[in-house]
Simulated assay, not measured.
Amino acid sequence: MNTLAQTWDWLTSSANWYGENGVWTRLGQHLYLTSVCLLISCVVALPVALVLGHLGRGGALAVNISNVGRAVPTFAVLVLLLLSPIGTWGDWPTIVALVLFAVPPLLTNAYVGMRGVDQDVVRAARGMGMTGTQMLLRVEVPLATPLILTGVRIAAVQLVATATIAALAGGGGLGRIITAGFNLASTPQVVAGAVLVALFALLVEAVFEIVERLSPEQVRGRAG
């Protein structure tokens, strides 16, 4: 109970929220890093998944190859990147490691969503004279949107939780609060940092849940 009380005191102290090393600064860094990695991951994974799902070829192989990355610890990838020439490129070792971590759920969910589109609808669109690109953008992608958003949500939450490793490479983010707590032998600060990361992840989860709940209405509107 003493640790919990001290953790609460740390979280409610305004001195810990402001300044160069304050919570708000670290939260902004964490949000920036997560957003950049999520954006890059989407740019890399989604076009591949959508095209392969539309064609119905090579998707299973791509998904299996991407899932191999899940078996490799992100921290191990980060260490290898730091020891490589990329290690001198600022935040890029962390970004590359996190992007590799986020690609599998994006690729898998988008491909499964595309392949799960009702083929009768696809054949009807083809019979109406739609081109492949028109079917992809106006029929298949809207119908696959719920699963695509699920993949984005999973990747975003995982990135929020895993972006704490940036602190180990000298980067910013909420992980710096945790590592600083270890350096100071301050258990309350370590626990406070973990609580902040957990709350941030839950907030991101809630935001994407709301977006996913709205997506069926958007799909029906576009279909209409």
Results as ranks from 00 to 15, higher is better:
Ala5Met: 10
Gly181Pro: 04
Val68Asn: 01
Pro105Arg: 06
Arg126Ala: 10
Ser41Val: 14
Ala45Tyr: 11
Leu27Gln: 06
Leu149His: 03
Val139His: 01
His30Thr: 02
Tyr111Glu: 03
Tyr111Lys: 03
Ala223Thr: 14
Asp120Val: 06
Gly22Ala: 14
Leu81Trp: 10
Val204Gln: 06
Leu149Gln: 03
Ala5Val: 09
Gly170Asn: 06
Tyr32Gly: 10
Ile165Met: 05
Gly224Leu: 12
Glu217Asn: 10
Gly172Val: 05
Ala201Gln: 04
Leu52His: 02
Thr74Asn: 01
Gly173Pro: 03
Gly87Phe: 15
Ser41Glu: 07
Trp8His: 08
Leu80Arg: 04
Met130Pro: 04
Thr12Cys: 03
Leu147Cys: 03
Gly28Leu: 07
Ile95Ala: 05
Thr133Phe: 10
Thr145Glu: 07
Gly193His: 07
Val139Trp: 00
Ala102Met: 15
Val152Arg: 02
Val204Cys: 14
Val190Met: 15
Thr162Asp: 01
Ala185Met: 11
Val152Asn: 02
Asn109Leu: 13
Thr94Asn: 05
Leu106Asp: 01
Arg126Leu: 07
Ala102Gly: 04
Val23Trp: 15
Ala206Met: 13
Arg220Val: 13
Thr131Asn: 11
Asp91Gln: 15
Asn109Glu: 05
Ile165Thr: 02
Leu78Trp: 11
Gly22Asp: 07
Ala167Leu: 06
Asn16Met: 09
Val79Gln: 02
Trp89Thr: 13
Leu31Ile: 08
Val68Gln: 00
Thr34Phe: 08
Ile178Lys: 05
Pro142Leu: 13
Val219Ser: 05
Val43Ala: 15
Gly53His: 05
Met135Asp: 15
Phe75Met: 15
Gly53Leu: 07
Ala156Asn: 08
Gly90Glu: 09
Gly113Thr: 05
Glu140Pro: 02
Ser215Asp: 09
Arg213Leu: 11
Ser66Asp: 03
Leu149Phe: 12
Ala60His: 14
Gly172Ser: 10
Ala201Asp: 12
Ile154Leu: 11
Ala76Cys: 12
Leu214Gly: 14
Ala125Asn: 07
Gly53Phe: 06
Val204Pro: 05
Cys42His: 03
Ser14Pro: 10
Ala102Val: 08
Gly58Asp: 06
Gly172Gln: 10
Pro104Leu: 00
Val152Pro: 00
Ser186Tyr: 00
Pro73Met: 04
Val43Cys: 14
Leu143Met: 12
Asn64Gly: 13
Thr74Glu: 00
Leu159Gln: 04
Val122Ser: 08
Leu196Cys: 09
Gln158Glu: 11
Val99Gln: 00
Thr94Ile: 11
Gly173Thr: 04
Gly170Thr: 11
Ala206Arg: 13
Ser13Asp: 15
Leu147Ile: 09
Ser13Thr: 14
